[in-house]
Nucleic acid binder design. Sequence first.
DNA 1: GGTGGGCGTTAACATAGGTCATTGTGGAGG
DNA 2: CCTCCACAATGACCTATGTTAACGCCCACC
Lengths: 255, 255
Amino acid sequence: MQAERTPGWSGDLHAVRKLHAFAPMTGHDRETLSRLMAHRTRVEPHEDILVEGVPSRDIFLLTSGWAIRYKLLSDGRRQIVGHLIPGDFFGLRASMFQIADDSVQALTTTSIVRIPGKSFSAMLRDRSNLGMAIMWSVMREHSILAEHAVRLGRRSARERIAHLLIELLHRLQLVRLAGDNEFHLPLTQEVLADTLGLSIVHVNRALRRLRNDGTIALDPQRRRVVINDVGRLGRIAEFSAGYLDQGPALGGAAD
Amino acid sequence: MQAERTPGWSGDLHAVRKLHAFAPMTGHDRETLSRLMAHRTRVEPHEDILVEGVPSRDIFLLTSGWAIRYKLLSDGRRQIVGHLIPGDFFGLRASMFQIADDSVQALTTTSIVRIPGKSFSAMLRDRSNLGMAIMWSVMREHSILAEHAVRLGRRSARERIAHLLIELLHRLQLVRLAGDNEFHLPLTQEVLADTLGLSIVHVNRALRRLRNDGTIALDPQRRRVVINDVGRLGRIAEFSAGYLDQGPALGGAAD
DNA sequence: GGTGGGCGTTAACATAGGTCATTGTGGAGG
DNA sequence: CCTCCACAATGACCTATGTTAACGCCCACC
């Protein structure tokens, strides 16, 4: 369903802010993006945008709301392999391979922009900053995924939660969707559990401990987290932002 | 330390075979590769080739032996995030960002080829098949990593081992380093544990069960695995090869 | 031909985290 | 106003996996 207008850069600043952190978005790039954004689509919660095993050629940009990338096992177990927030692209891998190798589902009402595979190829061919910036954001996603694996394989429940919260804080700050120490977190405990490889009950326990500690505060109604002591949470998580804050090495592969 | 000669394609077939699965390697591509391979380096077990946090501009190609990609926590916990086998490239992310965001260490005596960042950039700029093929192999690695996360987050010890073995069987077969149902596996139980997010003891237990089952056979001396019943192991793992066997969509982003 | 170190194997025991079951609460819809 | 439903919260209990500790084997090295 069609939704918001696209008056200049009102709602799409997220992507620009993020990409800008990598490569300067020229007027031309912005124009290109803006043209691509001509038609946005609204997606409702629980709707799948990409489905594992199904062909897809296009690239997507999430412009508002949250989504997850996940895989299912036949007995219903689900592992969430990533979270998509405004400014994130997805579908690139699916467009390079024949088919999507994981599913993407909206968590909240979201709006997305579909960039035809052809347009994206053209951008790459022209070596526009935009194309390069998107490649960079794929690499960054790869880094995030590697940290996710460490979280799943070698951290305790408490550490996993702490680490995820700090990671999200950083990512959201980059697109100005988080304050210094608080943000809107539309994840149910079930989603957290499937992200962190834990049971719902245990997520609840660990969360409560963190709250009793006074380390964080949750407002379940407004779905808001406040991190009372960012330093402490970071220490629990043993978080180091290296994998998120890397600028590009412009002389390198992207030269 | 300098080692083998590079007479034509003797030892480097692995990479070619793998890349060929993606895009036809023209004579020109082969020539380029071969020029790049001019000097190979030998790396001894336990030697780090890349270190998390340390700058690196070059791309590497592993031409023989095994290596791992890993991260450490301050108390010594280690999570292996990937295995590198002959034909695998690494260092691309490190070259796009300022620094490596994980470490790469040789498991066996290996030989590697260092491709200067500049040469790689040039290949990309020229849109050579080689450059594209390398991008493709990065994407494939991303897919493998996503499956790794699922393995860590939502599979039991037994399933994790089964899944890893089948994955390695497939990957090794692609470069002709595995037979129909057996291959050389130079991973100690400690490495398996750090890969699978388990303790050494528990890896041992799960492995023994698999052996008692008759599902697999191990020759610890010769470091060889024989999978007596590939179908069964695959069913235990709930393995589907989609994420490994994807050919390229040449009309897509790589068009 | 000792000896020491790396690796695999096992048993006994400890615990983080899973499962099951129940209750509360707020919002959506009749 | 009542009902339903999704979600959070918690207690009781269970189990997969971790920990500690010991032992054996092979092999490299002295």
